[in-house]
């Protein structure tokens, strides 16, 4: 049975979705920049409380995982199924490591009673509340995207395993890659804004 396939349409659809994702985070970046402009000193001090080392390690992890996903698409086009599976597996492991790091990072902050609505936060200034509110919301939304991306890549992994995705039918694989790169792209901006600019 011949099934109809339109790879170009599915890719355009994926891109349109990614563009709305960019607008979603773009809106948050506007909120961040205005609040930063209005509370420069507080944002400056609060950013010192975030661990640059953890942030840098997580940046490297995401960049490497993006490269492995991109390479896995080349591997599937070159009919190298095993290598494609290995690269996608690596991406999934790296994504999980990112989440574990995030878990500990948030955990330590929450142990120190730094989270929206805590009594310690209530005693601090408006700028601190805004900074950490945005920190939790934006990195949390980003972490949610990581989880969705991991599920997406796991589905692609299973379909390559079952030979449902192959060298002449990899539109889904490509779209999963695009999604993962977008998650990476957002982190490229989150990292300097929250960890570096102090």
């Amino acid at each position: 049975m011949e099934t109809h396939r339109d790879d170009t349409a599915s890719k355009i659809g994926m891109w349109l979705f990614l563009l709305t994702e960019m607008l979603l985070f773009g809106g948050l970046f506007i909120v961040y920049s205005i609040y930063r402009y209005k509370n420069q000193e507080a944002f400056h001090q609060a950013a010192h409380e975030l661990d640059v080392v953890v942030g840098t390690v997580n940046t490297a992890i995401l960049l490497i995982s993006s490269a492995t996903v991109a390479m896995s698409i080349s591997a599937i086009q070159l009919k190298n199924k095993k290598f494609a599976l290995f690269l996608l597996g690596t991406t999934i492991v790296l994504g999980l490591v990112f989440l574990v790091n995030k878990y500990f990072e948030w955990g330590i902050k929450i142990q120190h009673h730094i989270y929206p609505g805590s009594e310690v936060m209530a005693q601090r200034g408006q700028g601190d509340i805004l900074f950490f509110g945005l920190y939790y919301f934006m990195t949390g939304l980003h972490a949610l995207h990581i989880i969705i991306g991991l599920v997406f890549i796991a589905v692609v992994f299973a379909r390559i395993w079952n030979d449902k995705i192959s060298h002449d039918n990899f539109a889904l694989h490509e779209n999963a890659g695009l999604y993962w790169h977008l998650v990476d792209l957002i982190w490229i901006f989150l990292f300097p804004l929250f960890y570096l600019i102090t």
């Binding site: 490269a67 996903v69 991109a70 890659g177 695009l178 790169h181 990476d184 490229i188 300097p192 600019i197």
Partner: peptide, 18 residues
């Protein structure tokens, strides 16, 4: 500088990875 570098990085990701 930080945003300029982030801009270069995102351009690389968009152009090559994506």
């Amino acid at each position: 500088i930080a945003l300029f570098i982030a801009g270069i990085k995102s351009a690389l990701v968009l152009a090559i990875f994506m």
